[in-house]
């Protein structure tokens, strides 16, 4: 599966990359929301994993942009340290497909990502 990751924290970026590559996914890392949105056309991801607090464009804006571009496809998983109810609700209202809070379990992330892997389901 082609996964686009938007994360501004270097260490988190590395951890996500380790885990997702090990699970056999093709991963592209972007360092902020603007870069993530700009890479959508080029990379055509099957899944987007995004943080919320990022420079230039927030994760919520990335959700909006992805859902506008692919209204029926490309799920978005939010992985954020913000667990407040209003933020989670807003993310789902914007179309986010899943929400994980940090600290997160890498194993749990693998399982959640697998749910979106259509080829694996088939």
């Amino acid at each position: 599966m082609k996964i686009l990751v938007a994360e501004d924290d270097q260490l988190m970026m590395k951890m996500l990359e380790f885990r997702l590559r090990k699970d056999g996914h093709e991963v592209i890392i972007t360092h902020d929301g603007r870069e993530a949105v700009s890479k959508l056309d080029e990379f055509q991801p099957d899944l987007v994993i995004t943080d919320i607090m990022m420079p230039y464009l927030s994760g919520l804006e990335v959700v909006s942009a992805v859902k506008k571009k692919y209204p029926t496809g490309t799920p978005v998983v939010i992985l954020s340290g913000m667990g407040q109810e209003n933020v989670v609700l807003e993310a789902f209202q914007l179309g986010a497909d899943d929400y994980m809070t940090k600290p997160f379990s890498p194993n749990e992330l693998s399982v959640r990502v697998r749910r979106f892997d259509m080829s694996a389901i088939k």
Partner: peptide, 15 residues
Amino acid sequence: GELVSAKKNISGASA
């Protein structure tokens, strides 16, 4: 610093 930052972000058996 690296281990602490990683521990802040991950949970479960990895942590």
